[in-house]
Amino acid sequence: MSSEKIGNIRIVKINNGTVIDHIRAGHALEVLQILGITGKEGSIVTIAMNISSSRIGQKDIVKLEDRFLETPEVAKIALVAPEATINIIRDAKVVEKNRVRLPDLITDIVVCPNTRCITNEPREPIIAKYQVISRKPTRLKCLYCWTIVDEEEIIRQFTER
């Protein structure tokens, strides 16, 4: 099995799948939780944590064989790992390389933690909207009740199942 050298370590290459690179150090396990990957799926999952990175100092990497990401999954990763890059691998070659983009406005994927916010009324025909007020750390503001949603709360929502 071929491998690539990152810093002083070698990481196994994948043939088809996704490489999520430049995850903020220490957040790789949360990325796996967001994607619902438990390791029991049978396909290869490689994780490297706290590797030195010229771009973000220290980083984590996740490599997923035979797994491609849906758009909502990418949006969630952008919230917890806003510097991440997502590489699509086919026949052992990088065919697509995208940096996740945290937009200024997020809709729907986060639940307002304020239980008295009208966005938590299931029958109201509204979509929760959040303004990104900080990118490092990620902080959102609910545009209905002005509640601030911090990174810890976002990660809690994405990883609690």
Binding site: N114, R116, C117, I118, T119, E121, E124, I126, C142, L143, Y144, C145, W146, T147
Partner: peptide, 13 residues
């Protein structure tokens, strides 16, 4: 006047 936070903004929408 409404008891829920954000209700007036929904009304305006």
């Amino acid at each position: 006047r409404h008891p829920l936070d954000g209700s007036a903004r929904v009304a305006a929408e």
